[in-house]
């Protein structure tokens, strides 16, 4: 055997490279991968932030002690603290200094000097032991029995708001992801149909030489899975790059206009899931489409 013949060990691809068609599909799939990655990262970030906020709010209770009829709130505050420290689940009670109470009023009243005799409510910041929830009704009853006027805020309203917002964001994100997946499937089906028409001779010859349906479908599905993987990588790398730019921007702004963003390892893992998903979606869509075409047109 000649040296030239010895070099024939690698058979050529059964489907030819279709540069123009491949490029168009690549662009569409890369854009969809870009959007999918950003959506995934947005969902992940919103989950993390929601969990953090909820956790912070779950472990603290804010109590506002109102001054008594004589405008005195110091004694009432001491009484409230004594009640609280004996209460089940309370870990720590901090009486916020008057300066902090005044600071909280600044957004409404400005930085003017307040009259000394203006009765200000005193705020108590109560930390709960992990896993405990405060029995607000029992605490209200105890305050009432002690003659205290107090507003107890266990942040349940805010937690509900956060949960509701997170749920809404999650639904929107899932909807976006679903639309992206549908778009990917549609693009692949369209491209596969065009590919089968373009390479009809290959399909016919494969059928003629005894290739089974799965083999022919696999020829196409591998091609489209590979396209999905490449486009997915390009799209997700693009999304990570954009996220990195946003991170830079947010750091310049000090988190005033944009929330402080960061890219961590889990973001990269999430971003890498996109090309894999694109490959699977591309391959499976192609497989199914080719099988349908073969059943309809080749196997009478």
């Amino acid at each position: 055997m000649s040296a030239a013949q010895k070099n024939m060990h690698v058979p050529g691809p059964i489907l030819p490279k279709d540069k123009k068609g491949d490029r168009q599909l690549f662009i569409v799939m890369a854009i969809l991968a870009f959007l999918a990655t950003l959506t995934l990262l947005a969902v992940k970030t919103s989950y993390q932030m929601s969990a953090r906020w909820s956790s912070d709010l779950e472990n603290t209770v804010s109590i506002q002690i109102k001054p008594d009829a004589q405008g005195n709130s110091v004694q009432s505050t001491e009484t409230a603290r004594d009640i609280l420290v004996k209460f089940s689940g309370v870990d720590r009670v901090e009486i916020l200094p008057e300066a902090r109470s005044k600071a909280l009023l600044e957004p409404w009243l400005g930085s003017v000097e307040l009259p000394a005799d203006l009765p200000l409510p005193i705020l108590l910041d109560v930390s709960l032991a992990p896993g405990y929830t405060l029995d607000v009704e029992a605490l209200s009853a105890a305050f009432k029995q002690a003659g205290l006027r107090a507003d107890i805020d266990d942040h349940s309203r805010w937690r509900k708001e956060i949960k509701r917002s997170t749920r809404t964001a999650r639904i929107l994100a899932l909807l976006s992801l679903t639309l992206v997946v549908i778009a990917v499937i549609s693009a692949v089906i369209f491209a596969v149909r065009a590919g089968v028409v373009q390479h009809r001779l290959v399909v016919d010859v494969l059928h003629q030489v005894g290739a089974n349906m799965n083999y022919t479908a696999r020829v196409f599905s591998l091609r489209f899975a590979l396209s999905g993987l490449k486009a997915g990588l390009a799209g997700s790398i693009g999304a990570l790059f954009v996220l990195w730019l946003l991170t830079l921007l947010s750091s310049f702004g000090g988190g005033i206009l944009l929330p402080l963003l960061e890219i961590n390892l889990s973001d990269i893992y999430f971003a890498l899931a996109t090309p894999l998903a694109m490959a699977v979606i591309g391959g499976l869509s192609a497989q199914r489409t080719v099988r349908n075409i073969l059943l309809r047109e080749i196997y009478p």
Binding site: V10, P11, G12, I14, V209, N212, Y215
Partner: peptide, 27 residues
């Protein structure tokens, strides 16, 4: 019905390729 982008070798070997035979076994 020869496939134009494949060489004569690959065209002729196609029936064996589709049943999973390695090119080394039939070269």
């Amino acid at each position: 019905s020869l496939i134009n982008h494949l060489s004569v070798f690959d065209n002729v070997g196609l029936p064996l390729r589709v049943i999973g035979k390695n090119v080394q076994t039939y070269q």
